[in-house]
Design a protein around this nucleic acid. Structure first.
Lengths: 1318, 419
DNA sequence: TAACTACCTATTGATATAAGTAATAGAGAATAC
DNA sequence: CTATTCTCTACCGACAATATCAATAGGTAGTGA
């Protein structure tokens, strides 16, 4: 029978995984030639690759001096004043658009620009693009306008002139017009090298003596153009080498005419420069000095290039590529990624879809040869073969659909104005063939996300697909542009010296500029457009993709089949609101946890085969062609704008260099562990956190009285639901593991690299989502460093300790841990040699897969002749013990706390959790003695485990409710407390635990409060340049307080912003984004417009600031450590507060960790933050009314932290509700400014709001008088306190509490604490 | 732990769990889930009658037994979070009329369960009816203050049984049975007309819970759960007009909704008193909201706000049930999914039922069937009558590839992550 | 040609939806107008 | 400018409610001055 055969085949495929061809094939095309360059890699000298950083041995010899001097430099670096990035606060949404556009483009404009971009691409619809462009460029000074946009438009005009013979004159004329406008300043946009390259081409093609003359009054002769260029100090060579000059012939012509012009102008230097360029392009002059061999001339052409008819460089006298390459070498300071080395990665990135297609097709045809006829194809084939089928159908469908859409839109455009939103230009950017793959692959990838079983939320899917299309378009552009890729941004033996820094900066900026010049302009799509595009694609897919399902009727035994959509759309209700979801047909979902998946993974989600492209700019770095952002932005353009500015200003060098260091660590797959994983996987059994193939728990039974008893029914339903959920979880876990195995297999014989980027606090994350060292135990167990280092005596010792740590034996002293391991050598050997058939000791450890990997490493080392010279690749970890609290303790100088988190030395590690547990226990004892029932119940039951999570999460600002929940869960797990009492007990305990933590980390507590208060105040302020407009805004209702209050709410636009010691500006993204419904083909989708301004969410701003600040600090520590480790030649990787290196280099890393931590915390971090707030938020006004809240808590807290504001005696009288923080001035000076709300008075000068204005009292009276007259009786009813507060403002800087006092602990002690990181 | 004021205990806790504050129990003492009648009689009310804020002349002596003058209710039943959304009939004329309508002349030996009566105006009207009409009146009331006006009635009239629990707890009905309270209720076959003895009355609060209760009770009918195991028991709801509008919404109208179809499928639903008989709200009900900031003719009359119109509705289970026993989940599923796009023709909206659900269209339009067994698929879900719905559900049930898991949602609750 | 109206359609805003809110303290924001 | 209800509750990685209908805005076409 057929089904049986298929099943057998499937198992065969599964079990034979190991013997499948090596994965290199996965990424190579069928042609063998391509592999050749890749294998050549091995022969390259080590120094050349990875060439990003100098080889360690160069540094080693002066390591000591470097280390000691670097420590001074680092100290200087950290203690200097941090340069801030300052941008204006966003304006509220009711401010007219024009005023807002300089920094933050709104999405309507964004959409226009994106449509224009699409219309220009391949000259899809240049006339339309021109219409849009002409509209856009009226917005002078808007952030969206950029010279490269102008250049692209002009390039298209020029191309149109050529393409459309009827209109040549028109386009040429428009081109010159635009140029003239740029030159004469009308556009406020200065021409660039690219502009001149275009104009020279225009001249060349259409000058009066050319074969196709176009008369234009505005046309300029090259002489004039050259003059203009020189005026703007634009390099002629840049012009000649510009991207827009398509052929060497053309470039040569341009060069000649420029030379001629230069001769005419008698500019000898220019003539020389040009002739040298010519020599380079002709290959007559070595492009570089001896160190680097000129790459291009000797490079063999790739098969593709031969196919595309690229000519051999040597055969033509003028090769523009040579010149461009030369320029790249200069820009990148000679560190250019050789083509052959990048080839596989490039191929991987650019040909994903082709590769996927080949594989699916292969699979499909394979089934064909097995004689499975088309009739059963839908039912019996594999996932790949299905996908191939869907793809065929979808592609055809899309081709016709896109035509329909284009026709429809054209009709609409005729009927209506231009304002109709267009989609067809976007759809034309990427071929239907690829659109089809993108759609299918993205849906497969997102399966199981968002908590949806076998599916996903529609919104996420549509946006993701839209975005994938956009990415594909941009990746294609990258490929077309084919800019040389740098392998470094420059390096320095010391990152922290002024010289080292400015070197980094110079080099990175040159490289970034080179990259930018080489790329044509493009612009991101708005979320709405993405979801609409996604909607169209998904709708079509659902319409054409089918699978055949078969089932047997349970009664008749008759088998039934039905063709069903492979993907379908449905709605669910979540607490009464609808939620649209896309789901996979169950038949498809089943395959995802069994079939092979590699076709479904985009390289954008895989590790890389070469070291990542160094980060040069906000979207420039990481993968070679796929653009990724250096920071993961929340829906906040503010964050993006700040970062952009900081990078432009050259402040981000160390952060970017840090990311490059993290990305440069080569990894490989642990083959031995992989083999074990695979065996477990294929066995389908549950082990080491790998879920079973078939969920192994029994379903709940239906109770007898289910039919009659409403209560029994609801209980059963609940059980049923949690069972279903557990089962679904099992399935999705299984899918996840499948992904990991698949990726591991693909990279089994390769070095791999993890490109990193940042979250908004500056923490670094590897980009590949499935398999990276940040992943779970399984991922980590599968990864090894690629480069081995000899263990040495210490290394061996550390390896043992590492094993003990992973197993869970981490509370003892180092030596005890090492001894513990020695006592278990037998088990270890058994685990290493006989992982599955032996005693399986490793599976009982905390992190079984890593334990296994370590067992294998240790065993191998011990078995080797000389364990000390064993070449080890296993990463060994040093973890901060409760890192957040460590930072808090260091900031606050908490002696007790410092001891508990091992900042202070001890002979064995302290454990905060145990400590807090004991404290709580003591209090309980006391309570029990006093007869408190609950205490008696809980006596002796407070283990470390009960309090652990709560202690950990206090750093994140856990509240009572959260703590209670955690503790309740733990208590329930113990099973020795009656279930119904757990909740009450948890309430009781939560209070105790929170108090105990507060008592232990008093300094931390104060700092947390201080941070929280600052954020609370800042997020309620109004920026100085907005202030006057803000209070004058509500004119209609003559100072009705309600209006004023809501006005203040609307004017709350200030996010908390600060700068880390590495100069990274951090913007908290929490705002109250308004969301709108957007219609798509599938359903309407509810999304926010990130570019529309929104008030801050001050609650979130305040509660998230303390953890975010601490995280920005630990991120800084990590980056400093990474940079320093790199300088010292150590391999380094990190998972936030867990730092990894080779076993042999743990000692040096430990030293670095301590040095950087001490220096960081010796640099008065908080003082600097305070100072920054004072400067950054200078003049920001806080309406006093915001200080009032229920119970006067805020005022109380402010008062307790020592805040006092100065007020005149009169003012003081009216300020009773905030009396606790008012200080009456004798001199009559006041920090409180007053301004009646909404009055249409004359503009108010700043001084009114500042202190020391004698006349101020008069002015108050005057205002009051006016108001009384104007206002009717109802205003008189206003409550006194509020009226008094409403019109009053204070500078937020005056309200910021002084820093809490620091405790006695000195961070220097950390130097001698062995268990600080362990 | 600071002793919590019982007033601060949220409403639902009293409904779901046990009324007494936790502190009143010893730590390990088992929960007392039920206060029996006898016990309640003996036991003095835990809370003493508190001194009223304003004395009403001559009233104090009869307080509890009698209700305060109806214009004084706000003072005797001040704002309390627990009861703030519980709407109770206050006007004795209205309750008299209602009592008469519910237990009309000629009724005999009725057993009435009155759940959540509030202060008990309606209870009193029922007791005032000629004695032979009502045999037993079971009161389910959890609120201490209200109980102070309910329990004294037991001394006057032995037909009353008071249970200090809300009728919203399913458990209480098991208690009633266990206590033999319903022993003398006949099990009347579904085909033998409306139940002659048993009736159920409740005030529905203006909360989600109230609305839930109504839809839950409808859902109990097809499988003859709850009181329906005794037969076609009539239910009387004092409910918001907002809810009534939903139940009463005409086919094809924009108001037509899932609960409306479920109601129509299971019961005959009528206004027991005309709408006007209970208007305006402030003349008939308690509590009347503080007028200054929440004026009673509200801007949004269709919200759950206290003060919006209330009325009296009677539902009687139908003899013929469109929902076959055991098919409830299918109905639920189909209605829920289809009403998402309630104004979209079946032809399209049917897809909400699952992958490939479009094949059901063939069945619904099968020309071999008599026209009465076909459904016009150009109609939209809000335009279908109960019969048409039963055809849709039938097609769904018979569909071999119908989704198997019809449970409420497949979305994981994202509450229990973190390792 | 400017002005006006009737008519039509695209956009915007408001509203309802599900249904045991598992257990629930306390602050702060929002809402009622 | 008070009473009451609603919301939220641990940071980050990792983000999301939607169909329907009435009302309004905005545009077109037609018309007669």
């Amino acid at each position: 029978m057929l089904p049986r055969t298929a099943r057998q085949l499937e198992t065969t495929l599964l079990s034979s995984r190991q013997s499948l061809p090596r994965p290199a094939r996965l990424y190579s095309s069928p042609s063998k030639k391509l592999n050749a360059p890749a294998t050549a890699t091995a022969h390259l000298p080590r120094t050349d690759f990875p060439a990003f950083f100098p080889p360690p041995q160069n540094v080693v010899h002066d390591q000591d001096s470097a280390a000691s001097s670097s420590s001074h430099l680092l100290e200087d670096f950290l203690t200097r004043k941090i340069p801030y990035t300052i941008l204006p606060t966003p304006l509220p949404s009711d401010v007219p658009l024009n005023d807002r556009e300089r920094w933050f483009t709104d999405s309507a404009t964004q959409d226009q620009a994106a449509v224009m971009d699409a219309c220009l691409h391949n000259l899809y619809d240049v006339p339309r693009a021109k219409l849009i462009f002409d509209r856009l460029r009226t917005k002078k000074g808007s952030a969206i306008l950029h010279v490269s946009m102008y250049n692209l438009v002009m390039e298209s005009y020029l191309a149109m002139a050529e393409k459309d013979a009827q209109q040549t004159a028109y386009w040429v004329e428009e081109l010159w017009k635009l140029y003239t406008d740029m030159e004469n300043g009308n556009e406020q946009m200065s021409p660039s090298a690219g502009t001149f390259a275009l104009m020279l081409q225009a001249w060349h093609k259409y000058n009066p003596t050319s074969s196709n003359p176009v008369r234009s009054k505005l046309a300029l002769h090259p002489i004039q153009l050259l003059e203009n260029m020189l005026n703007k100090q634009i390099s002629v060579v840049d012009v000649v080498a510009d991207r827009t000059i398509a052929s060497s012939d053309l470039a040569s012509t341009v060069l000649m005419s420029l030379s001629q012009a230069a001769i005419n102008l008698d500019r000898v230097a220019i003539v020389t420069e040009l002739s040298r360029a010519q020599a380079i392009a002709a290959g007559e002059e070595s492009t570089t000095d001896d160190e680097v061999t000129p790459v291009l001339r000797h490079k063999a052409l790739s098969p593709e290039e031969i196919e595309q008819g690229v000519e051999f460089p040597a055969e033509i006298p003028f090769n523009i590529k040579l010149l461009r390459n030369h320029l790249a070498h200069i820009a990148y300071a000679r560190r250019v990624l050789p083509d052959d080395i990048g080839a596989r990665q490039k191929h991987l990135e650019t040909s994903v879809y082709e590769i996927a297609r080949e594989r699916m097709k292969e699979e499909y045809e394979h089934f064909e040869t097995l004689g499975i006829n088309t009739e059963n194809r839908l039912k019996d084939s594999t996932l790949q073969s299905w996908m191939w089928q869907w793809h065929q159908d979808l592609r055809t469908r899309l081709e016709s659909e896109i035509k329909l859409i284009a026709a429809f839109e054209a009709k609409m455009l005729n009927r209506h104005d231009q304002s109709t939103q267009l989609l067809s230009p976007y759809l034309a950017l990427v071929k239907a063939d690829r659109l089809s793959y993108i759609t299918i692959l993205e849906l497969m990838r997102l399966q199981g996300s968002g908590g949806v079983n076998h599916g996903m939320k529609t919104t996420r899917a549509l946006i993701a697909i839209g975005k994938a299309v956009e990415m594909e378009y941009k990746a294609q552009m990258c490929r077309t542009n084919d800019i040389a890729i740098p392998t470094m941004t420059g390096h320095s033996t010391n990152f922290f010296s002024a010289l080292g820094y400015s070197n980094l900066q110079k080099r990175r900026m040159a490289a970034a500029r080179h990259m930018q010049d080489g790329e044509s302009w493009t612009t991101p799509w708005s979320q709405a457009v993405r979801s609409k595009i996604g909607g169209i694609l998904v709708e079509c897919l659902m319409d054409v993709a089918y699978v055949r399902r078969q089932r047997e009727d349970q009664v008749t035994g008759k088998s039934e089949t039905e063709d069903q959509p492979a993907f379908y759309h449905a709605y669910e209700y979540v607490r009464g609101t609808k939620l649209g979801i896309l789901k996979l047909n169950p038949a498809v979902a089943e395959r995802l946890s069994t079939d092979r998946l590699r076709e479904t993974i985009h390289p954008r989600h895989l590790p890389m085969l070469v070291a990542p492209k160094p980060w040069m700019h906000i979207r420039q770095g990481g993968y070679l062609y796929n653009k990724t952002s250096v920071m993961r932005f929340k829906e906040s353009i503010e964050q993006e704008t700040y970062l952009q500015k900081a990078i432009d200003d050259g402040k981000m060098e160390l952060v970017l260099a840090g990311l490059d260091v993290l990305g440069s660590t080569p990894w490989r797959i642990n083959k031995n562990v992989y083999d074990v994983v695979l065996r477990v996987w294929n066995s389908g059994e549950r082990m080491g956190k790998i879920p079973p193939a078939v969920y192994d728990q029994p379903a709940p039974e239906i109770p007898e009285n289910y039919e009659k008893d409403l209560q029994a029914r609801s209980v059963h339903l609940q059980r049923q639901r949690s069972y279903t959920q557990a089962k679904a979880n099992n399935h999705s876990e299984r899918c996840n593991v499948n992904y990991k195995i698949e990726i591991a297999r693909a990279f089994l014989h390769d070095k791999l690299y993890m490109p990193h980027n940042l979250d908004f606090r500056g923490r670094a994350y590897p980009i590949p989502p499935h398999l990276s060292h940040i992943g779970d135990d399984l991922c980590r167990g599968l990864l090894l460093f690629a480069d081995p280092k000899p263990l040495g005596e210490r290394g061996l010792w550390w390896l043992k300790i590492h094993l003990a740590n992973l197993y869970g034996y981490d509370k003892a002293s180092f030596q005890e841990r090492a001894d513990w391991v020695m006592e278990r050598l037998d088990d270890i050997a058994d685990s290493a040699t006989n992982p599955l058939d032996g005693r399986r000791w490793w599976t009982k450890g905390d992190d079984p897969w890593q334990v296994l990997a370590t067992c294998m490493e240790l065993h191998a080392a011990l078995q080797s002749e000389d364990p000390h010279s064993y070449m080890s690749t296993l990463p060994v970890h040093q973890d901060g013990t409760c890192n957040g609290l460590q930072h808090y303790a260091a900031l606050g100088g908490d002696a007790v706390g410092a001891k508990q988190v091992n900042l202070a030395a001890g002979d064995r590690p302290s454990d905060v959790y145990t400590y807090v547990g004991r404290l709580v226990d003591q209090q309980i004892e006391a309570d029990a003695a006093n007869g408190v029932e609950m205490a008696k119940l809980l006596q002796g039951k407070i283990t470390r485990k009960v309090v652990k999570q709560t202690v950990m999460t206090t750093v994140y600002g856990v509240t009572f409710v959260g703590a209670r929940e955690q503790i309740e869960k733990q208590l329930k797990d113990r099973h020795d407390i009656p279930d119904e009492l757990c909740w009450t007990a948890a309430s009781y305990l939560a209070k105790k635990v929170l108090t105990c933590i507060g008592d232990t980390f008093t300094g931390a507590k104060h700092i947390q409060n201080w941070l929280n208060l600052c954020a609370r105040l800042i997020s309620k302020t109004i920026a100085p340049d907005r202030f006057i407009d803000a209070i004058a805004a509500p004119k209609k209702k003559r100072g009705r307080p309600a209006v004023a209050m809501s006005r203040f709410k609307k004017e709350q636009m200030t996010s908390v912003v600060w700068t880390t010691p590495l100069q990274l500006p951090i913007v908290q993204p929490y705002r109250k984004h308004a969301r709108k419904q957007v219609m798509t083909a599938v359903q309407s989708v509810f999304i926010s417009d990130p570019s529309s301004p929104a008030e801050v969410n001050s609650l979130k701003q305040a509660s998230a600031f303390p953890p975010n600040f601490i995280h920005s600090l630990d991120a800084t520590h990590m980056m400093l450590t990474a940079l320093e480790c790199h300088s010292r030649g150590l391999t380094f990787a990190s998972v936030h507060d867990s730092y990894w290196t080779h076993a042999s280099t743990i000692d040096s890393m430990a030293e670095v960790i301590r040095d950087t931590f001490i220096l960081l915390h010796s640099s008065d971090v908080l003082g600097k933050l305070h100072q920054e707030f004072k400067e950054r938020f200078k003049g920001f006004k806080l309406p006093l009314i915001h200080l009032q809240n229920k119970g006067g808590n805020l005022v109380k807290m402010l008062s307790e932290s020592g805040v006092r504001i100065v007020a005149t005696p009169e003012q003081a009288k009216s300020l009773e509700s905030i009396a606790a923080i008012v200080e009456v001035s004798e001199t009559g000076s006041s920090a409180i400014g007053e301004q009646p709300i909404g009055s249409e008075g004359e503009p108010i000068s700043d001084q009114v709001f500042l202190e020391e204005l004698d006349e101020e009292d008069d002015s108050i009276d005057e205002w009051e008088g006016q108001r009384k007259k104007a206002a009717a009786a109802n205003i008189a009813r206003e409550a006194k306190a509020t009226r008094e507060l409403l019109g009053k403002f204070v500078d937020v800087v005056d309200l910021l509490p002084p820093l809490p006092e620091k405790g006695t602990f000195s961070v220097q002690e950390i130097k001698s604490s062995p268990y600080f990181f362990s | 732990m600071s002793p919590q004021s019982p007033w601060l205990v949220p409403y639902w806790r009293n409904i779901k769990i046990f009324r007494r504050p936790r502190q009143s129990r010893g730590l390990l003492e088992p929960r007392r889930s039920f206060v029996g009648v006898a016990e309640a009689k003996v036991q003095n009310p835990k809370t003493k009658l508190s001194t009223p804020i304003y004395e009403v002349e001559g009233y104090e002596s009869s307080r509890g037994r009698e209700l305060p003058p109806i214009d004084q209710w706000r003072k005797y039943f001040p704002y309390e979070k627990e009861t703030s959304t519980r709407i109770s009939l206050r006007n004795p004329d209205t309750t008299d009329a209602l009592a008469n309508a519910l237990v009309p002349e000629g009724s005999q030996g009725k057993i009435i369960i009155e759940s959540d009566p509030g202060p008990g105006q309606l209870t009193r009207s029922l007791l005032k009816l000629p004695r032979e009409r009502i045999k037993k009146l079971i009161i389910l009331e959890p609120n201490d203050l209200y109980l102070q006006y309910i329990k004294p009635l037991q001394a006057i009239d032995d037909r009353i049984m008071v249970y200090e629990q809300s009728g919203y707890e399913w458990g209480v009905y098991n208690k009633l049975e266990d206590a033999g309270e319903l022993d003398d209720v006949l099990k009347v076959p579904w085909t033998s007309g409306v139940h002659p003895q048993l009736s159920f009355i409740t005030h529905i609060p203006t909360t989600v819970l109230g609305e839930q209760l109504i839809s839950q009770l409808f859902r109990g009918i097809p499988d003859k759960q709850w009181l329906f195991q005794y037969g076609r028991v009539p239910l009387c709801f004092i409910m918001s007009s907002r809810m009534w509008k939903r139940l009463d919404a005409p086919m094809g109208g924009t108001q037509r909704c899932k609960v409306g179809v479920m109601g129509a499928a299971t019961s005959e639903i009528t206004e027991l008193l005309p709408f006007e008989a209970t208007q305006p709200f402030k003349d008939h009900f308690h509590p009347v909201p503080y007028a200054k900031y929440a004026p009673v003719p509200s801007k949004h009359p269709d919200t759950r706000r206290v003060g919006n119109p209330y009325q009296v509705v009677l539902t009687v289970p139908r003899e013929f049930q469109a929902i076959q026993p055991g098919n409830l989940d299918y109905w639920d599923y189909c209605l829920r999914k289809m009403f998402v796009q309630k104004a979209t023709p079946l032809k399209i909206s049917i897809n909400s039922l699952g992958p490939g659900a479009a094949t059901l269209l063939k069945k619904l339009t099968d020309h071999d069937l008599p026209p009465s067994e076909q459904v016009d698929i150009r109609k939209s879900p809000n335009g279908l009558n109960v019969h048409e719905w039963s055809l849709v559900v039938k097609a769904f049930v018979e569909w071999p590839f119908a989704p198997e898991d019809l449970s409420i949602d497949t979305i994981f609750s994202n509450t229990n992550e973190h390792r």
